Amino acid sequence: MIVIGRSGQLARALAGQESADLTVVRLGRPHLDFRTVCDTTALLSDLRPDIIVNAAGFTDVDGSERTPDAAFRVNCDGARRIAGSAAALGVPLIHVSTEYVFDGFSNRPYREVDSAAPLNAYGRSKLRGEAAVAATTPDHAILRTSWLYSPYGRNFFTKVLEKSGASAEIPVVADRHGSPTSAFELARGIERVARNLLAWRDSRRGRGIFHMTCAGETRWAGFASEILRNTGCTVRPVTSDSFVELARRPMNSRLCNDRLSDVHGVVLARWQDALSEVRTRYGEVGR
């Protein structure tokens, strides 16, 4: 399995899925850089992959508003190049996308058939990337996820813990709903989808768009409260307009995972249970 994205939290979690019958090779800068023109097909061909997972992305939501060209270069143009390489090599592609392709106005979890209407440049770049993948290779599975976190790098989980060290109370948005998704759970789900795609090579089974998040739902403030349990730091729930953000965010980030379960037989753990594992791994990272 070739994973596009070398140091991102999902790429690092996918590396942990390596086993006796699964070799994971991560590719990223400087060898593969979407900011430059490089022959991705030649690079990937030398590695002879059975399947490719594109976990790379320009994920800075506010940064995408400031530099939309950079976001589209990675999330759309880069996705198209990887899809073209997968098609040229005759291997399946798993492309990771986001709930930000939706506007968040629905009062229920979004299904794959619901109309996309992104509110910001990041969501638009990811939606264009999905379309580029679908138009370039039919042998694909696009996996939309939400509220991804891990012990690695800068994400909601690590930022909340960082802020808790400097304050006894932190303000957190309480009017946005979603499903916190551990990078480790997502990586396990991706591995199972990858094995299915390889097993179903002679059919179109398992292809298309799927939603993949941890089970259950909460609000950002509820997620933060669980992160901070037993730390002595408390959460002060606030509304979204309490923060100055360049990009608009969806108020409803919930995704319906029924199609994933029906087709691939994949159901991720409850977000509360997945959080326990991330807490443990966070301590092992060495902070």
Results as ranks from 00 to 15, higher is better:
R236V: 10
K159Y: 11
N252G: 12
N196E: 02
K163E: 15
F105L: 12
D50L: 11
E65Q: 13
Y110N: 03
P92V: 10
P138T: 07
S45A: 15
A132V: 05
E217S: 15
I4Y: 05
D114H: 07
A86Q: 01
I82L: 02
Y100N: 13
V133H: 11
E130K: 07
A56C: 03
L14M: 14
P118H: 06
E191H: 01
E112L: 01
R188Y: 00
I227E: 01
A135M: 09
G104Q: 07
R111C: 13
R259A: 14
F102Q: 08
D175K: 12
R35N: 13
K163R: 15
E99I: 05
D202M: 05
A87P: 00
A117E: 05
F243D: 04
H177M: 12
D60R: 13
C233K: 08
G104M: 07
L148C: 10
R192E: 10
S19T: 15
F34S: 05
F184Y: 12
A11K: 02
V160K: 09
L93D: 02
D50V: 03
E226T: 06
K163S: 15
Q272A: 10
G189S: 05
G206P: 11
L14W: 04
R204P: 06
I82Y: 01
C38A: 13
E284L: 15
S7A: 12
A71E: 01
I209G: 00
G283Q: 11
L148K: 11
K163W: 13
H95L: 00
I82M: 03
W220Q: 06
L47N: 08
A224L: 03
T136I: 05
R281L: 15
N155T: 05
L228W: 06
A269M: 10
A79Y: 06
Q272M: 02
N54M: 06
L255T: 05
R287W: 14
